[in-house]
Structures are given as structure tokens and as C-alpha cells.
């Protein structure tokens, strides 16, 4: 089963709960030099009362054709056949940041040891039938992890406001 992270931007308020849950799950301490895997932000386009405001939460999109995989000179990244997540083993990571240059969503970060780290979709949890930490915590169910089939179904039904990415480049 292949999964896709979906963000319903109408339900997101950019609160950061997902980002905190991610740090809790992955023991990330940004002040000690860890990068964050997930970021929340607000984009205000225009200054009038009804001008659009978008709240978002972004992390690795686990692109179908993930450009980071080809970008890595050491072969650290790969697709997990079971979940479709873009997973990694950074034993041979040389800290060259090539994956960062390949990623359209600024997902790869580099930790205290200079090696690449990023969202792994909470793959161990998902394998056990649990939700990723960010999805589990979301107070408004704005973030979800859906199967490829469900995603296509939702798209066919044109359920509004769905947002998911597959990298174009």
C-alpha cells in the first residue's frame, strides 16, 4: 500500500502542533543543532479584510519520483516498496547537501553530525497501523495520510481543498 500525505488547507491554522509532535517523536532539538522535519507557516497575500490567507504545514512530500533519490551521490535514499515513503540510511551520507538542492520543498536537513535527516513518514508506526505523529496530533484533522487509492478516489470526487504534491522536477 502506497501512502500520500494530504493537507486540507481550509482546516489548517498553521498552529505548529504537527511540528512539535514531529520533534517529540524524532527527538529533535533544534537548539542543539537538529534540523526540523516539519514547518508551519502563514502566507498572507494582500492586506485587506478578505484577501487570501493560507496556513500550511509542510514536510517531506514523499514524492512519487523523488528527485532527492537521484540527487544523492551516496545512494542513501530510496523508496520503501511497502509504504511508498522516501526513506534513508545515512551511514554513507557525506553531508554534501545535494539532496537539499534536489528537493522542491526544502525537506532534507542536516543534523549535528552533518548527515542528512528528514521525515521518514513515521514508517515504523505506519507499519504497525499507527498514524504518523503529525497526523495523530492534528487538532483539526487537517493533515492526513491516505492510501494512493483513497487519494485518487477523493480526487475523483473532487473533494475540495486537497493538496498533495508530486515533485515536477
Amino acid at each position: 500500500m502506497s501512502y500520500i500525505f494530504v493537507l486540507d488547507t481550509k482546516r489548517c491554522i498553521g498552529c505548529g502542533a504537527c511540528a512539535v509532535a514531529c520533534m517529540d517523536q524524532n527527538d529533535l532539538e533544534p537548539r542543539q543543532g537538529d534540523p526540523v522535519f516539519r514547518r508551519c507557516f502563514t502566507v498572507e497575500k494582500g492586506e485587506n479584510k478578505y484577501d487570501p490567507v493560507t496556513y500550511m504545514s509542510m514536510s517531506c512530500m514523499h514524492c512519487k519520483d523523488a528527485p532527492c533519490i537521484q540527487g544523492c551521490p551516496s545512494g542513501c535514499l530510496k523508496k520503501d516498496p511497502e509504504t511508498g515513503f522516501t526513506v534513508y540510511d545515512n551511514t554513507n551520507c557525506i553531508g554534501c547537501h545535494s539532496c537539499a538542492m534536489a528537493c522542491p520543498f526544502a525537506a532534507p536537513g542536516f543534523g549535528r553530525e552533518g548527515k542528512m535527516v528528514k521525515c521518514d513518514g513515521c514508517i515504523e508506526r505506519v507499519r504497525q497501523g499507527l498514524q504518523p505523529a503529525c497526523v495523530k496530533v492534528c487538532p483539526y484533522q487537517a493533515l492526513s495520510l491516505v492510501s494512493q487509492e483513497e487519494f485518487e478516489q477523493r480526487n475523483r470526487e473532487k473533494k475540495a481543498r486537497l493538496l498533495a504534491y508530486t515533485a515536477l522536477i
Binding site: 502542533a17 496530533v137 487538532p139
Partner: peptide
């Protein structure tokens, strides 16, 4: 080592807010 919302709990139904998610720290 980690916190999570209790599923089915009367108020939060398994979710947490930003602040609650940071309980460990």
C-alpha cells in the same frame, strides 16, 4: 519519551494542541 492524545478522550479525542504536544519538554 513521547506524548500523544488519548484516543476517545472526552475533550481531545486523541488529538493535542501545539502546547499539549510539547508536554515532554
Amino acid at each position: 519519551i513521547k506524548v500523544e492524545g488519548t484516543p476517545g478522550f472526552p475533550t481531545n479525542q486523541g488529538a493535542l494542541c501545539t502546547k499539549g504536544a510539547a508536554n515532554r519538554q
